[in-house]
């Protein structure tokens, strides 16, 4: 086994194991913390694939921002600390059967399609310099559209979460 395969096996085991813990743990806060581990393992996987910039953006956005937002969400919705008894819905075994069937199908298709493809051994060149020049040369329009999307998400979140704007008429009707 080469070093790349060993690191891939370790990181893959961590990612899959912590993903399963996110789905099966009985405590909400623990689910968010297992998610951090899964995201970190995937960042290591991107480093093995020589996508450095994507790996550090993964650490910054997912581990740094999204998990903190989710923890804030858990706090603000007053989720129970400790085990929550009604966390799973009733159709757990049907869902597990569907998931196992889907996984078998997807893995079979992927392995049949790409099992004998080869990855080049030289470095893939995912540095910030290479990605920056690619973004600002060929991907400028999607990049700018993405900034408008972020702005509209920001405005939308503010409008949704403030009660004193936009809801003056509907509040009288609603409650």
């Amino acid at each position: 086994m080469t070093g790349q395969e060993i690191v891939f096996a370790l990181l893959g085991a961590v990612a899959v194991g912590s993903g399963i813990m996110v789905v099966t743990t009985r405590q909400l806060v623990h689910a968010a913390l297992w998610l951090v581990l899964s995201f970190g393992a995937l960042a290591g996987m991107y480093l093995v694939l020589t996508a450095e910039f994507v790996a550090w953006v993964q650490v910054l956005i997912y581990v740094g921002a999204i998990v903190v937002l989710l923890l804030f969400g858990i706090m603000l919705t007053r989720a129970p600390i400790g085990t929550a008894p009604d966390l799973d819905s009733g159709n757990r075994w049907i869902a597990a059967a569907v998931a196992v069937a889907t996984a078998a199908l997807l893995v079979t298709v992927v392995v049949m399609g790409f099992g004998d493809a080869k990855m080049p051994l030289e470095a893939g060149g995912g540095s910030a310099e290479a990605l920056g020049s690619a973004v600002f040369r060929t991907w400028v329009l999607p990049f700018e559209v993405l900034s408008v999307l972020l702005l509209s998400a920001l405005v939308g979140a503010i409008v949704l979460s403030r009660t004193d704007i936009g809801g003056a008429r509907s509040r009288g009707k609603g409650d």
Binding site: T2, Q4, E5, F8, G12, A15, V16, G19, I20, V22, V23, S38, L42, M45, L49, D88, S89, N91, R92, A95, A96, V98, A99, V100, T102, A103, L106, V107, V110, V111, G113, F114, G115, D116, A117, K118, M119
Partner: peptide, 23 residues
């Protein structure tokens, strides 16, 4: 090492997420 390994891992992770959404 072939990209099939990475794609199989990504399929498994996707299925775990889908299971969570269902359950």
């Amino acid at each position: 090492m072939s990209p099939g390994h990475y794609l199989a891992l990504s399929a498994i992770l996707f299925t775990i997420g889908a299971l969570g959404v269902l359950v």
